[in-house]
Structure formats: C-alpha cells, structure tokens
Amino acid sequence: MTPRRYLLALGVPGLIWVVLFVTLALYSLLAIALGGLDPLLLTPVPAWNPLDWSTTNVHLVAQSLQPFSGDTWVVFQRTCIYILIALAGCILIGYPVAYFTAVHAGRWRGTILALLVLPLLVSYMLRMLAWVGLLSPQGWVNAVLVPLHIVLSNFGWLDGRAITVVSGLMYGWIPYFIIPVYAALARFDTRYLEASRDLGAGTGSTFFRVTLPMSRQGLLAGTVVVALPMFGDFFTNGLLSGVSSTGMVGTLINTYAESQTNQAVAAALAVWLTVFLAILLLPYLRSSARAGREVGR
C-alpha cells in the first residue's frame, strides 16, 4: 500500500460523513425552502431538482421581512438589538476578565482559568435552570430587590421581560466569549507595554494605542463565537420568557419548525438567516485569514 493510498483510506470515511451530513443536509434544507407543499397533507415536499425550484416560501419570508412593517422584520430588528446589547455586555465584562487573566494574573492564572472554564462544563441548561429559580416571583432576586423598593413585590421577571432575556443571553454565552479573547491575549508580548511606557506613553494611551489594537483579532473571534449561536438561540428565550413579544429569529424558526405545515417557512427563514450571517461574517473571515498569513510569514 503506497503512502498516498493509505492517506486516502484515512480520509475517506470522514469525507463521506461530511458530504452526507453537512452538504446533503444543507442541500435538503435548501430543497425544502425552495420546494412545494403536498396539496392534501400540507406537508413540505422537497424539490431535489434545481429545475423544480419555486421561490414561493422564500418570497413569503422576503415579504414579511419588509423593512419596518413586515412581521418578521420586527422580530429580526428585536433580535439584532438584543444581540448587540448582549455583545456589548460580553465585551465590557469579558474583555477585562480575559485581559487580567492573560496579562496580570501571575501565579493565580491557572486557578482563574479553571474557574473561567467551569461554566462551560456545567451545562447551559443547568445555568438557565438556576436563573429560573432565582428570578421566580418568590425567588432570591425579588427577596433582595423588593425590600430595597427597586421592584414591586412578586415582580414577574420571567413574564416576558426584555431585560431578563438580554441578561440571560449575556450570562449564557459570555464564558464562550472570554476563552477565545483570553487565548489571543495570552500570546500577547507584554514587552510591548514596557516599550510603550519607556517611550513616554501613559497608561491610557498605552491601552488605546497598543493593547486594544493588538486584542482586535481576539475580540473579533470572541464576538463571532457568541453572536452565531445567539442568532439561532430559542431556548434562552423559551426558558426565561416564553412570550412572543420577546421572541427572536431563532424562536420564530423553531416555532415554524414545530408545526408540520409551516416547516417550509422555517427552512426558508433558516436559509435567509444563513445568507445574512455569511455576509456579516465575510469581513471577519477575511481579516482572520490575513492575520493567519501574517503569522505564517
């Protein structure tokens, strides 16, 4: 057996897996989105042949995505606002945490790092379950805030409050944000800070002119790592609100997917979301490819 043949034999099972369960799966999604409906059962019928594609479902979604007036547009706008606020929170809290751990933690680094990884090992659902207990009308959050007259007694944090959903998203995803930012900052050569100070820059100007530009790649990576799942998130909403007035794009796709007759719309919406995210991701993928080339040089 030649080395080349052997290498091919190693690769083939994985290649078949990826073609079948990534390519073919995504193609089925497209075939449903561009397919038709069974006239009797009203279930989606995939159009496998591109010549049979119909744009009915995609068009339906496009119509409801009409800026400012369409039903889906409203949800989409809300999704973007929620995610932007949650991301801002992730950056404001997560960046200092990652920065301290990578640059200043000294002998505590290992311990802090373990504590930062711990939430990733405790499942997402358990962490949400914990908040449902704390935020329930008789829970500990109200037990603290009601005597302080910050909220009325029996305040319903879980009755469809935007603040609960946004904080939940932030709480849920911030550990996934911190790790890539930390990984980027840990490679950061602290001699640059000394050089900047030796050349007369103050703490503030060193931070804005040296540290922040050098953290750019890490911040971008962290943002992408958490923004992507937030766009498909429906469970945080489902657990912390469950009301359609705080619904996000993920909620909408999941709701459509649950009813047989609307599955084609779910598929069309998922295709739209993927295209939107691909456009959003393009600059990031380009810049990380460029950074990769620079490192390789």
Partner: peptide
C-alpha cells in the same frame, strides 16, 4: 474544500444545522 466543508458546522447557527439534519433524515 474538504476542510472548509468539515468546519461549516462552526459557522452556521446550530439551529440551522439541526433543521437541515432533520429534513435530511425525514425526507431522504
């Protein structure tokens, strides 16, 4: 192209992949 395809699940939301796999299994 193979390494691109293999990493696609990292750059689409899990919900999209879940829906795609659901249709693959139920329609094929």
């Amino acid at each position: 192209p193979a390494s691109f395809l293999a990493t696609v699940p990292l750059v689409v939301p899990e919900l999209v992949l879940a829906l795609a796999l659901f249709f693959l299994v139920t329609k094929v």
